[in-house]
């Protein structure tokens, strides 16, 4: 009996703990209706882009690499989206052009990483700065999306906003892909123990290429959604760096300690979204939100290290 209980806690402890925490917060500040239907809809809508970008980063991290380029690429993609849509007035073409943009960049990165054995982390930082530069060159002042059709994309609803449904479908698909298919299984092995993957006959380079392609598409999707939702471009990318990372790491502290996973990233993104919404509602200064998210990241990493430490001690003796 206790064994089952321990297993349950190990597996679901973190997300349940987070939920309890949020309910407590709601309980304390009961004058602020955090979990009203309208608010939940807003939270979901505002979290979509972060959640999708975090999912993209998750694919890369599951494959064993790290990435910071998304912070620069995201802004760049929104600018490209705006520019293309203002010229050609089509959501589809704009979306496809930013897909092409990020795919070229990501394939470049994964080529350097797999064939030339560059550190993915360092290459991605370089790309981030380069993307920042290109973005600044492309837009001289705030770029506004002018086409009302495109702008209305964010407002389509089927009960829930369309973009939320899209994100949900993408997440569900990713969950099955990563956890229930042979591809996902192989990808996870590549990320956790490259030598074991080689011994098992897995083509590690191919796996990483696919991971980077999927990640690129997800970030492109996130950038399109954010562009249509906001309508104006400012440097969102830098602002996203922290919550996206925090979502992935927070997620990695759940279920299987230390491994980035789809469901965990989702919960992480939602949790951060709720915290941010809540802080906005009680009129906290926006910089405090960043501080809070940073603190959550430290706690998440600390939790992972704590759970990991037990495991390592167990193996040594």
């Amino acid at each position: 009996m206790p064994n089952q209980f321990i297993k349950f806690i190990r597996l679901y402890g973190m997300p349940i703990g987070l939920l309890v925490l949020l309910l407590l917060v709601q309980g304390i500040f009961h004058k602020v209706p955090l979990f009203s239907l309208l608010n939940i809809k807003h939270i979901l809508l505002e979290t979509v882009s972060i959640a999708l970008t975090a999912l993209g980063l998750s694919y890369i991290m599951i494959s064993g690499e790290g990435d910071l380029s998304f912070a620069g690429m995201f802004s760049l993609l929104t600018v490209v989206f705006a520019l293309v849509s203002n010229q050609l007035n089509s959501f589809t073409i704009s979306f496809l052009s930013i897909c092409a943009t990020i795919l070229v960049v990501n394939l470049f990165i994964v080529l350097l990483v797999t064939k030339l054995k560059f550190s993915s982390f360092i290459v991605s930082i370089a790309i981030m700065f380069m993307a920042n530069g290109v973005e600044k060159a492309l837009h001289q002042q705030t770029t506004l999306i002018q086409d009302p059709n495109i702008l209305s994309f964010a407002k389509i609803e089927f009960g829930l906003p369309l973009v939320v449904l899209i994100a949900a479908i993408v997440y569900i698909f990713s969950f099955f892909l990563i956890n229930k298919t042979k591809f996902g299984f192989s990808l996870r092995i590549v990320g956790e123990n490259k030598n074991a993957a080689i011994e098992a006959g897995i083509n590690t380079n191919q796996m990483k290429v696919i991971a980077y392609i999927i990640a690129g598409l997800l970030i492109a999707l996130a950038a399109s959604i954010e562009s249509t939702r906001v309508g104006a471009i400012y440097e969102q990318g830098k602002y996203y760096m922290l919550p996206v990372f925090a979502a992935c790491f927070l997620g990695s502290s759940m279920f299987v300690p230390g491994r980035v996973n789809v469901f965990g990233t989702l919960i992480g993104a939602l949790f951060l979204g709720v915290i941010e919404k809540f802080m906005n509602m009680i009129s906290v200064e926006s910089y405090l939100v960043s501080i809070a998210q940073g603190a959550i990241l430290i706690i998440a990493v600390g939790l992972v290290a704590y759970r990991h430490r037990e495991k390592i001690e167990q193996i040594k003796l």
């Binding site: 099955f176 956890n179 229930k180 298919t181 042979k182 299984f185 996870r188 092995i189 956790e192 123990n193 074991a196 011994e199 098992a200 006959g201 299987v256 300690p257 230390g258 491994r259 495991k311």
Partner: peptide
């Protein structure tokens, strides 16, 4: 692969599938 079960580790090279899913 430390985080994976013994069953998964033994079958790393040939994971059993049914209709495309593990």
């Amino acid at each position: 692969v430390e985080s994976m079960s013994i069953l998964e580790n033994i079958l790393v090279a040939f994971p059993p599938t049914k209709n495309g899913l593990l």
